[in-house]
């Protein structure tokens, strides 16, 4: 799809999330449900290294650097319905295009978000990594996570799995879609303002 020039900056405008965008999201999601062939060592190594680095940036609270990992047409998605549901008619904990994700990072850093004063301390384990090269410019990575969070005297644990779609740009691999599927996404949660 072509984006009119005045809307090219996706941290300010969102012209590209349309019917076709949702349809493409459905198609990629279906691939994440399939069995994949065993990845070669390089692919697996690169996928694991990418996830580890991303996890560390979040856990270190380096959200601007984290944001830079995402592509212009990215989606950071934390569904409510386990597995995703239909985002056209269902809300998500996060359904962030580049603009909303920039908002989220900005919001976290305002120093005024009382739900993050004090800020969450997190540390996460990412494992069971599988990777699939769809084409030379596109990779899918599937992994499990356990996120430990400590905030305001309370320790919590979140488990689930990530579905990453990475795209290759001139300089690096970037995240086109990151979907964090919480095991209990549709259940009771206190203060879900941490980043998954």
């Amino acid at each position: 799809m072509s984006i009119p020039d005045q809307y090219a900056d996706t941290s300010t405008w969102s012209y590209h999330i349309d019917e076709e965008y949702y349809a493409a999201l459905d198609r990629t999601r279906a691939l994440f449900e399939e069995d994949w062939p065993e990845p070669d060592a390089t692919l697996l190594h690169e996928a694991t290294a990418f996830l580890s680095r991303e996890a560390r940036l979040i856990d270190q609270g380096r959200f601007n650097a984290w944001l830079e990992l995402f592509s212009d047409d990215c989606l950071y998605w934390v569904p409510v319905t386990a597995g995703g549901g239909d985002p056209r008619v269902e809300v998500s904990h996060a359904f962030d295009d580049r603009r909303r994700l920039t908002d989220r990072v900005y919001w976290l850093r305002t120093g005024l978000a009382y739900s993050q004063i004090p800020a969450s301390r997190t540390r996460r384990l990412v494992g069971n990594v599988e990777a699939l090269e769809l084409d030379p410019e596109t990779r899918l990575i599937r992994s499990n996570f356990v996120v430990h969070e400590f905030r305001a005297g309370v320790t919590k644990v979140y488990a689930g799995w990530y579905a990453h779609t990475l795209v290759k740009t001139e300089h690096a691999w970037q995240i086109k879609v990151k979907r964090a599927n919480l095991l209990d996404s549709e259940q009771y949660h206190e203060n879900l303002t941490l980043v998954f």
Partner: peptide, 11 residues
């Protein structure tokens, strides 16, 4: 009301 709900909790 068809969407899954946010079940937000507070202490």
């Amino acid at each position: 009301v068809r969407s899954a709900a946010f079940r937000m909790g507070f202490r």
